[in-house]
Simulated assay, not measured.
Amino acid sequence: MRILILSAALLAGTAACTWVPIEAGGKAVRVLPAGPVAPGCVAKGEIVVTVKNKVGFYNRNPLRVQEELETLARNEAPSAGANAVQALAPPADGSQRYSAWQCPPR
């Protein structure tokens, strides 16, 4: 019983944590809303990111998973020559596709 309580406490504590930190290059990357992209933006390709959406039998908070996917996409954008990302579809099974864009400064 004691192990079960300790395991539950550990799992609850890690559920609120963000496991994906934003990197220096990712901080400068904008997240574009759904819809048409602003004039002057040039497509740089697609970024596919994945995180754990389950830990054992526990389903992680979908908003936290989505936040981590967005952070990963922002971290990957500079290596694609992009300064903006836009989700192409909602997250599915811990994975999400983004389009990468190089946009003029705001």
Rank of each mutant, 00 (worst) to 15 (best):
G94A: 05
A16C: 10
N53P: 03
P90M: 02
P39W: 01
L11D: 04
E68S: 03
A80D: 11
D93T: 10
A15F: 15
P90K: 11
C41T: 08
E76S: 07
L32F: 03
L69E: 04
R74G: 00
V48F: 08
I47W: 00
G81T: 00
V55I: 11
A12P: 03
C41N: 12
G26R: 01
P39S: 08
I22M: 14
A89G: 08
P36D: 14
K27I: 07
V31A: 12
K52R: 15
V48H: 14
A77V: 09
G45M: 03
A34W: 07
A87P: 04
G94W: 02
Y58I: 14
A24M: 05
A87V: 02
V49T: 09
N61A: 08
S95G: 10
D93E: 15
V48R: 10
N61S: 10
P78C: 03
A38D: 08
G45V: 08
G40T: 08
L72D: 06
A82M: 02
K52L: 11
Y58S: 09
K54E: 08
Q86L: 03
P21A: 15
K27C: 12
Q86K: 05
L69V: 11
E46W: 02
C17D: 08
L72H: 08
P36F: 08
P78M: 00
G45E: 04
V20K: 01
A15C: 05
L63E: 14
P90C: 01
K27N: 10
A73Y: 10
A24H: 14
A77L: 03
V55S: 09
V31T: 15
N83M: 00
Y58Q: 11
A43L: 10
A92V: 12
A89S: 14
Q96M: 15
P62K: 04
K44T: 04
W19F: 10
R64P: 02
Q96H: 13
A34F: 06
R60T: 06
G35D: 02
W19G: 12
L63C: 03
G81K: 00
E23I: 05
Y58H: 13
Y58W: 15
N59Y: 06
G45A: 03
Y58T: 08
Q86M: 06
A16S: 09
E76V: 05
N61E: 07
S95H: 07
G35I: 01
L11S: 07
V51H: 02
P39C: 04
T14G: 06
R64V: 07
V48C: 13
P78Y: 01
F57Y: 12
K27W: 13
I22S: 14
T18R: 12
A87G: 07
V31D: 15
A24N: 11
I47N: 09
Q66E: 15
L10F: 05
A92C: 05
V48S: 13
V42G: 00
P62F: 07
K44D: 13
S79L: 06
G45W: 09
G94C: 04
V65K: 00
